[in-house]
């Protein structure tokens, strides 16, 4: 997956923005250095499962999230993909072992601050303006105001948000704008991993395509590790060649779209592909 980062995207990394992201860049460079091979995974799940009372939401899953790459969790409703993402975000306490940066996670609060999390409609706080939403955590951590403002401006440029939009309340923003604000908010603290839960599902087709392109550019520009949840195969294919297909709380197959087509692990895989391509 390291190879996917082609030369042009690396050139883009030289923009002034990227200098602020030394940490993730450094990791990227390590990952890219010939001879080292695979860098250690950012997240490593070992037999992780989730149960709500009697209901099993996630059967034991083992999975690695590799640095600098985009991993897509795909599957129909109720397949457990969102539950798995919520485990990574520290919103669900699972059974089994979750490692972050090589260490078993015991205190999620420390980990959460190194993650960015975006939900379907942005998950913005309705009582705060876009700018206040974005700056909330920086202010809470007592970061320098001017620096925070500067960072907001940079990320707003990157996500094509203008200043007037930043000073509006969520109720005054369109679906696409809300999603952009949500992405800016998730990126504010330079996260190691960006967790995206159906970020495009609530949008009109045209806006959706537009934002998909922008999002991909942003991901490549920043070189951030991404885990994305979607139910759309075309969206999954667009973002990554490492897909994890889920069904009924279990992983059915892991691999690229081509592998799914060529060597389906289960009749369900073919069924899912056919259904997606039919409509």
């Amino acid at each position: 997956m390291v190879e996917r980062l082609s030369a042009p995207s690396e050139t883009r990394c030289e923009c002034k923005l990227s200098r602020r992201f030394g940490r993730s860049l450094a990791r990227l460079r390590v990952a890219q250095t010939p001879g080292i091979g695979f860098a250690p995974p950012v997240f490593s799940l070992n037999n992780v499962s989730v149960r709500y009372g009697e209901t099993v939401a996630l059967r034991p899953v083992s999975l690695d999230v590799r640095p600098g790459a985009t991993l897509v969790l795909i599957g129909p409703s109720g397949s457990g993909k969102t539950t798995l993402l919520r485990v990574l975000a520290g919103l669900v306490a699972p059974e089994g072992e979750v490692r972050f940066d090589g260490e078993v996670v015991t205190d999620w609060r420390g980990v959460r601050r190194r993650l960015g999390y975006v939900v379907q409609d942005g998950g913005l706080f309705p009582h705060l303006t876009a700018r206040e939403n974005v700056a909330l955590m920086s202010h809470e951590l007592g970061r320098d105001r001017a620096e925070t403002e500067a960072r907001i401006e940079e990320l707003a440029d990157l996500t094509h948000l203008n200043r007037a939009q930043l000073d509006r309340y969520p109720a005054e923003l369109s679906g696409g704008q809300k999603q952009r604000v949500g992405i800016v908010r998730a990126l504010m603290l330079e996260p190691d991993v960006l967790l995206l839960d159906e970020p495009l599902s609530a949008l009109d087709p045209i806006i959706r395509a537009e934002l998909a392109k922008e999002l991909k550019t942003i991901i490549e520009t920043l070189g951030t590790t991404v885990v994305l949840v979607t139910h759309s195969l075309s969206e999954a294919q667009f973002f990554s060649d490492r897909l994890v297909l889920m069904r009924g709380g279990s992983v059915v197959q892991e691999g690229s779209y081509e592998e799914f087509e060529r060597a389906p692990a289960d009749p369900f895989v073919t069924q899912f592909i056919e259904a997606e391509t039919l409509l």
Partner: peptide, 25 residues
Amino acid sequence: AALLDSADALGLSRRARLRRVELPL
């Protein structure tokens, strides 16, 4: 619940979540 998830995922402490998000809402 989605808003509380967002607040938790941002890394807000319980107290900050109460003061900044829950009480205003």
